[in-house]
Amino acid sequence: MLLSPPLLKKLDALSLQAKRAFTGASKGEKRSTKRGSSVEFADFRSYNMGDDIRRIDWNAYGRFEKFYLKMFLEEEDLDITLLIDASLSMQFGAPVSKLLAAQQMAAAIGYVGLTNFDRVGAAVFDSGIRAWFPPTRGRGAAGQLFNFLEKQEPGGNADFTAVMKRVAAQARRSGIAVVISDFLLPEGYETGLKTLAARGFEVTAIQILDRRELEPDIVGDLKLVDVETGVAREVSVSDTLLKTYKRTVDNYCANLRAFCLRYNMNYLLVANDTPIDLTMLRLLRSVGLTK
């Protein structure tokens, strides 16, 4: 069970929010780019032949003796795409692996979306899209989503850019894209994220790192082997080297964060041992993904 019932109860109070409006597929609870029938005033415009005379603002006619239509915002559903990195590097982490943390986070975000009548889709990727959960609405689909996520096992090397390009190409509508990965990508993450943003997605990058990746506890003369590439690096770990490494990690995360801000993306760094309820109830709200 990815999420406990008490957590699900807490998540019921949350909803996802986008910084801007998106065009939905059907009526929903999120503002749409369309004008519609909600109670929220949007704008005035001149009457044209064929317009519904029930929308004429008679108060404006009294003042200006011209017909104006009063326009209200349309509320539609929101497309939420969860992109979960399941490459081999995500299998690390204790007591909770990075992949499990990503699965829990994706499940929680998906659950919040589904309970608010948003369309939630998910893709699990390594070098390509390994599994696809088609966009689905309604609370009843939460169980299917959980089952889908739960089945995923780590494997393969990440080809982030190719996957993001494919997601962007296949998407019928844009919306919120939540990318959950460790972002330890030698080839870089910039192209992939920019591709999503260019397709119109409002991107939230959630970087999950193992606590020991942030604060390594290794010492001595070691031969470090990359689990994905198999490349070995010899290293004599000293305090100096650990400081250098931590500085490198901090710089790397800071660069990712700066990149996201520059392209109007949300960014959140989460350690694998951070409780999921803390992440959902506090951290995601701080970056503006939930309210």
């Binding site: 299998q91 330890l184 990746e213 470090l224 690096r233 010899e234 290293v235």
Partner: peptide, 24 residues
Amino acid sequence: RLKRKERVISSTFLWHSALRDLQA
């Protein structure tokens, strides 16, 4: 070269700048 203990990690990517030598 020292005979070093092998340890598999998630990625050596971030260790790159701190590594002593690349000729393993």
